[in-house]
Design a protein around this nucleic acid. Sequence first.
DNA 1: CATGAATGAGAGTTCATTCAT
DNA 2: GATGAATGAACTCTCATTCAT
Lengths: 201, 201, 201, 201
Amino acid sequence: MPKVSDTHLAGRRDQILSTAATCFAAQGFHATSMADVVRASGLSAGSVYRYFASKDDLIGAIIDRYLEGLVGRFAQAHATSSSPADTVIDALRLLTQGLQDTPFQPFTQLMPQFWSEARRNETIRQRGEIAFRLLLGQFADIVKRAQAQGTVQTNLEPSGVAQIMLALVQGFFLQSILLGQDAALEVYADTVRRLLSPSSG
Amino acid sequence: MPKVSDTHLAGRRDQILSTAATCFAAQGFHATSMADVVRASGLSAGSVYRYFASKDDLIGAIIDRYLEGLVGRFAQAHATSSSPADTVIDALRLLTQGLQDTPFQPFTQLMPQFWSEARRNETIRQRGEIAFRLLLGQFADIVKRAQAQGTVQTNLEPSGVAQIMLALVQGFFLQSILLGQDAALEVYADTVRRLLSPSSG
Amino acid sequence: MPKVSDTHLAGRRDQILSTAATCFAAQGFHATSMADVVRASGLSAGSVYRYFASKDDLIGAIIDRYLEGLVGRFAQAHATSSSPADTVIDALRLLTQGLQDTPFQPFTQLMPQFWSEARRNETIRQRGEIAFRLLLGQFADIVKRAQAQGTVQTNLEPSGVAQIMLALVQGFFLQSILLGQDAALEVYADTVRRLLSPSSG
Amino acid sequence: MPKVSDTHLAGRRDQILSTAATCFAAQGFHATSMADVVRASGLSAGSVYRYFASKDDLIGAIIDRYLEGLVGRFAQAHATSSSPADTVIDALRLLTQGLQDTPFQPFTQLMPQFWSEARRNETIRQRGEIAFRLLLGQFADIVKRAQAQGTVQTNLEPSGVAQIMLALVQGFFLQSILLGQDAALEVYADTVRRLLSPSSG
DNA sequence: CATGAATGAGAGTTCATTCAT
DNA sequence: GATGAATGAACTCTCATTCAT
């Protein structure tokens, strides 16, 4: 039997991961059956189980990829963001608009499900913790740079501001789930800028 | 058993609601079977279904109670909060400490699951929207009062600040799920106060 | 406690029987729950079970009443029917039109269900057998009278003709269930008359 | 197990259909649980549901097969029946004796249940209507042929006679359910012949 | 006597997973 | 390597029946 290249195998894995993410995003982890994933992937049940040991394994892999992507995207954004306020607003833009028509898009919609799973699945929680701490570290660095430049008060704890920056992103995302995000972004972004960069307001 | 007082019936309903909330909080809506709920309630399957037409109905009732309680608790807090910063910090204290050993406690842990369900269940989403808008309205009122008193800049849009206040609560709650809430509250609260009430810092 | 009159008790029993028959006719024995019967009767579950030991008991009582009524109605018809053909046609008219707006009406629609049950429930089968033999006896008498009057050939076995008369009634009833009974009755009745009373055609 | 021949799959389906028909014939549609069918089929619950989407689907398939078989058998009989009387009598023989030890046998006993279901299930009713009209058409053709040959009076409406022929078959079948069919067939058949083919009596 | 809350076995159905081919 | 038929435990929900009040 012909040995298939590792690239080919990795491609198969990716294919399953992406189609599964789309399924999970549309219907949720629990309402999506493995049969749905199998059908969407175009493979057979046996094949899917060759690449992922179980449904939980597949969910874990998807969450990993989601977190990697998330941190990666934000890191790009930070390189061009000079201030905490811009960093937050860039992140909001990324989440609400920037991911349209991107292979990464389905993963975004999984966020609330991820938070839900994290409370019950310690492995998932740990992966999330690592990603969060990474983001918080990046945010704190940005705060420190801004403090050095004099655009942020020095009596603010960088780690505290980092937490708040993250909260501002997460909170807006949650609200847009429940309220619809109609234009609210503009007011929100403006207020964020006035609060975090009062001098520039 | 024959006809029984309405109080007794309402008590039974409450009993089921509370034990079910505990189950759902511990394991999630989907990983909790009705058999689990039945066992925890101490009643029979038939009895549980006498009070709730379906698992979804039970979940809906729990979310309703959770939202009612949430808004109610926050409303109490607002009565005694003079500033936006205090309002946010009171809410954080309420969520992280104030509900310990309260019949309301299990409901708090359901929050992420609620957000998760809201994306796929329009009825739940609508209920959440109503509660959110109520909270946002209360927050905006507090901002206006503070602006009238001169403790908050008047060039800030009250609705924008209200959104940010809500985000600060939600974001902290999410982070505490993933990071543990070790002491972080103090730094977070302090930073919130410095940002929202700069004059008092 | 006041002893309730036997008449009153019998009235209650009748009331349950009638409302239950309506339920069963509309939905079938199996799709009708005892809760449906209880609701329709306006009584409580306990009360219904005071009058009927079980659902099967209730079904049995309904079938009994149905068979009594059936035989009674047909007996009336026979008194005025001079010929086998008229007897059959009178019975058809009775089944298809004569029972409209009669308290007996719901029972008619139970016929196929009765046949269905008879194959599996020996008690019901026996009751049905008694009623059938009674009808067959009456039909045979009519044949004999007609033979004595010279309107039916004497080389026909009266019991055989009786079976055929019954079959003609039952068969038409079945066909009207499946085909709708649109006008078919007239052609059918006419052909029955020509076959059973050839001289009068 | 992997891909398997279509014949094998069809065989499985047949196997389930036959064993289910036996169960349903013995106990009725409603008193037979899917667990009974599963046990009798020798397969697992999941397998049965791979071939039939629901219990109703299974019942529908059984009724379809029953009606197909019925019409098919009767069609064979008509080819060799020269007169309406012979056609009816052949059908009676087929129903009472000819199906013993035939794979088709269990289906026959389902007839009353089919009539029962037809009143409440429009899909089933329609299928039955098609089969009935087919049979009636074949019967009417036989009557016309007999009229052309002069063995049946020409003043009889062929469709009316066809209905009566069908009724004679159905009625005898019903009576044999309730009365037992001991010897009655001979008298019945004889009387049918004398009435439908008076010249040959 | 009447009530109706409570019961719990069992109904139909699903679905993550396996393994013979 | 890939397949997909087969599995069977577990799911949500129903309903005939009982009995404390």
